[in-house]
């Protein structure tokens, strides 16, 4: 594929813009911004990757991974601002995911320690962990807000914060990991995974492409469960103070009822 054929593919951007205009969806501006950003970001990443691959220097690989973790943390932390110290909790989660998955992959010799493997797989793992973390944080904060009575019931009976929050924690971990598990059940039947499709289009042997895709799917399973569970167990203590009281920051709705 060259830049001429890529420019022709912009017709696929033109179609939604026309439809948005006709149907008055008001999505034209966002569509154009998204297109420009994706072109600039991906081209930049492409050239950076080319440089890193050519150099084969571990320092550059490490820098790329750090950049991914910083970007993922910056994006996910917006959903957990009510949780004290959410930034470092996300950083710990992403680093753990990276260390666990790469240790297994490199330790068992599943992939060679080259930039060509390390960077794309790290990107997929950290990116997936970021999405899972956002799903988890959304659900967790909603669960706490809507179940404050149940949480305080357990506290009022002499339960620990962990016991008080257990149901909400488990519900949130399950809710955030279920989409990953469910999507794997229908994979190949409903849609071909993006990475596998890309490899096949680029001329790779379909069986080889499937084997790599399976590897990624298994890694995503670990990423899903470890991300949600780790973030959950790191997050819940900061919802309580040293007197084992549910903090007001999360429980903004209490202020209306507390006076009665």
């Amino acid at each position: 594929m060259n830049f001429l054929t890529l420019s022709l593919s912009l017709v696929f951007v033109f179609i939604p813009i026309v439809l948005s205009k006709v149907l008055k969806l008001e999505l034209e501006k966002d569509t154009i911004i998204a297109t420009v950003r994706s072109v600039v970001q991906l081209l930049a990443v492409g050239y950076v990757l080319k440089f890193v691959f050519d150099s084969e220097n571990m320092i550059y690989i490490l820098l790329m991974i750090i950049l991914m973790i910083v970007a993922a943390t910056h994006n996910a932390r917006k959903k957990g601002t009510s949780i004290k110290g959410i930034t470092w909790k996300l950083v710990v989660t992403f680093i753990t995911i990276e260390v666990v998955t790469q240790t297994i992959l490199l330790g068992f010799g599943i992939i060679p320690p080259t930039a060509q493997y390390l960077i794309p797989i790290s990107g997929m793992m950290i990116g997936n962990s970021m999405v899972l973390s956002i799903l988890f944080l959304n659900r967790f904060t909603a669960e706490i807000e809507s179940n404050q009575d149940a949480i305080e019931l357990i506290l009022s009976l002499g339960g620990t914060p962990k016991q008080a929050i257990h149901t909400q924690l488990v519900n949130s971990i399950k809710a955030s990991t279920i989409p990953t598990i469910e999507s794997q059940k229908t994979i190949g039947l409903v849609q071909l995974p993006g990475m596998m499709s890309g490899q096949i289009i680029a001329g790779a042997d379909p069986v080889q492409a499937v084997l790599f895709q399976l590897l990624i799917l298994f890694l995503l399973l670990t990423t899903a469960v470890v991300s949600s569970a780790l973030l959950g167990f790191l997050s819940y203590p900061s919802l309580f103070n040293e007197r084992k009281q549910l903090l007001k920051k999360i429980t903004t709705s209490t202020s209306d009822t507390e006076k009665s």
Binding site: E152, S156, Q245, L246, E258, K259, S260
Partner: peptide, 13 residues
């Protein structure tokens, strides 16, 4: 009144 109860039960300080 309820606030007083919550203080005595230790749900708030």
């Amino acid at each position: 009144k309820t606030t007083l109860f919550r203080l005595c039960n230790g749900l708030i300080s």
